[in-house]
Nucleic acid binder design. Sequence first.
DNA 1: CTGTTAGCGCATTCAG
DNA 2: CTGAATGCGCTAACAG
Lengths: 340, 340
Amino acid sequence: MASQSDVARLANVSFMTVSRVVNGDPRVKPETRERVQRAIEELRYRPNAAARALNRQRSMTIALVLPRMDAALSEPYFSQLIYHVERALMPLDYSILIVSGENRGGVDPTLLFDQKKADGVMILGAQIGDPRLEALSARGCPTVLLHARSELPGISWVDVDNAAMVDYFVDRLHRLGHRRIAFISGDLSVPNARQRLDAFRARTETLGLPCGEDLHFPGDWSSGSGFRAFARFHALEVRPSAVIASNDHMAIGFLKAAAESGVSVPDDLSVVGIDDIEMAAYTTPSLTTMRQPLRLIASGAVEALAAAMDDGSRPASRLVLGAEPVLRESCGPISSVSFS
Amino acid sequence: MASQSDVARLANVSFMTVSRVVNGDPRVKPETRERVQRAIEELRYRPNAAARALNRQRSMTIALVLPRMDAALSEPYFSQLIYHVERALMPLDYSILIVSGENRGGVDPTLLFDQKKADGVMILGAQIGDPRLEALSARGCPTVLLHARSELPGISWVDVDNAAMVDYFVDRLHRLGHRRIAFISGDLSVPNARQRLDAFRARTETLGLPCGEDLHFPGDWSSGSGFRAFARFHALEVRPSAVIASNDHMAIGFLKAAAESGVSVPDDLSVVGIDDIEMAAYTTPSLTTMRQPLRLIASGAVEALAAAMDDGSRPASRLVLGAEPVLRESCGPISSVSFS
DNA sequence: CTGTTAGCGCATTCAG
DNA sequence: CTGAATGCGCTAACAG
């Protein structure tokens, strides 16, 4: 592989001039620049990232921590997030190092920062009290959370408005005549799961709807947990007429169990989810859900992280984005009951 | 951040000794080693990856090229592959750089190699004739394909036995009495899609089953394309009694369309998919499919890539793995027809 | 067993 | 506008 000196020799200049051309320094005679350019082409010269990183003290790389495998974030959904993050990062010329979400035994993002393998860290769907967050915050490592929140100093985040999404569905179901609404929560060690549950409780109470603990079916984001939640539903003396699931996977699992039990959706029961994964349009019945502004989440996170990496002393930024309802077949008016 | 010299000063040795300790060189007096270790702890020293990479000419990083967004590989499924790749790579102390699959306008993995940002490249679900493959092969960049194949020199790959999976289903359906079987293919610019289609044609022909082009419904891996394939099915004068989809997403889309048209699965029609994504267990009816040996694919690929990076001159390795059928509700014996 | 010398490829600083 | 010197942090190859 050719180095700057090789190029310099071929172009009859010092390697310093080559460096200038490569970095677009304007103080180079056009004619010389031209000559250097040709030499670069001829030798297929490419700047060595390691040398550059060593000198500049910047790796031009960020670490992206994926959610834990056990479905902290809906699967098909976070791969899209990766895509959008990459798109947003490309113009800045940053690369992405991925790190599995497993915090036990996995790669430590703080270590990557200390080793200068990454200039900043992005975390998808962080857990509450994840020890890595504190470590990152303490190190002063530029960090941004996607789909999660944190009060730690120096930790920026971008999240959707969890309360607004849940409120929307509670209100809508209420208007459709539903009075008894159940809620399937996600893994409560994830901030979003808790926020959604809290919003559900608050909103049902405000509207004067029943909101006892028997209407809360704990789940863990997985389809299986949604499926199992149906047993709780089924065991209830007086059944709810609607169920809000904290994500589509659980809603789909629940739908499956309902179908097996002969409960007809949406005739006997309305079901809604959150995320709008691709499959949500292809279940039977198709799923009413909430589409997340993925591109905005990604670009917002990239912007926040870039700012933090440019200026380590700036305060953390926080951004809350709205989601968009997608109305499909799984949700309808309450049937054959006097509205009380 | 502390450097080796800082540690050396604190431990009263030369930085060379520190380097030896860090790299586990045995030729260091235990007592000295101990002292250095303590200094390392105290200063929280971490080796600088850029400096190490510059000196060793190895970045200890590989690039992982994701499949294109338009579902070249089933979504929830490739995130698991990432996970397994990471697990397999961790003991070797390699990091993973991710690159989006979009070949137009995306990051070029060859460039990452030339810049020495990556020592090797792993590609998930490569397209046929992807120009990047040739570039990689020409550069002599250690490369391994997952879920794809290539004859280019120096390109290793690990793939499942596509023909065996399709053969299994054709045979099984045949034994269940089905005679007229249709096939939904994936995006035919992906090698796997073509192999599966070819296997279908060959096997039906061998068994003396009808295999006209009207029984081939072209898809593109997405649920939507599976959904649309149903229109072709529906338009047929004489309808098949079974459908094999090249992946679960398309099978699920097809299932949805069938449900909407009142075609009962598996009573009127059997449907099978490939991949065993999580959702396959939660559709109604649940989906009979083929589970891929993800962990083996990942570990095989890592092994092949590691070998190629160690010794650039070694021949490419090829590995074909078998899949495991998962029998669920969507597939049953043919109904109300004399077996001919 | 430990230290010295040299250089990986690049960019900043200062001289011309 | 261009070049020379210097150092980023580390390790390989030699000394001692």
